[in-house]
């Protein structure tokens, strides 16, 4: 049993168009990686959530629009437009739904995604 995160290389930060997402393969999992940029053009954060939208049952979250709702940064699922918080993965409209959050590291302009902590081994 190891809890050490295994980091998977995704892509250079600049490969993601500001305020959009891409889908990365991390181990066997599909992960949506989003690049948040301020309206002034400064990079703010990179977030990683599961690509699987539990509401529509499809691997689509990286294709959703980014935004904020009452100050909470979210992605809107492109299928039924339900929102997931980028920080926590919680669905704003339906508390019974959520998506996993993955650790992200940006080093020298390169993005890495870690295995999700809850995974255990």
């Amino acid at each position: 049993m190891t809890t050490q995160a295994l980091w998977t290389y995704v892509c250079p930060l600049t490969a993601i168009v500001p305020n959009t997402g891409v889908c990365a393969k991390v181990g066997r999992e599909q992960v949506a990686v989003f690049r948040l940029v301020s309206p002034q053009g400064e990079d703010e954060a990179v977030h990683a959530l599961g690509q699987w939208d539990p509401r529509s049952q499809a691997n689509v979250l990286s294709r959703g629009l980014l935004g904020d709702i009452n100050g909470v940064a979210v992605v809107a699922s492109p299928v039924y437009k339900n929102h997931y918080a980028l920080e926590t993965g919680a669905c704003l409209e339906d508390e019974s739904l959520s998506v996993p959050v993955f650790p992200v590291r940006v080093a020298e302009g390169q993005i890495f995604v870690g295995r999700r902590p809850a995974d255990g081994a």
Binding site: P39, G67, A73, A76
Partner: peptide
């Protein structure tokens, strides 16, 4: 957004 809005925008105002 900078001139007339606030926040980051969302899936309603962006499209």
């Amino acid at each position: 957004l900078l001139k007339h809005g606030q926040g980051r925008g969302c899936d309603i105002c962006k499209p």
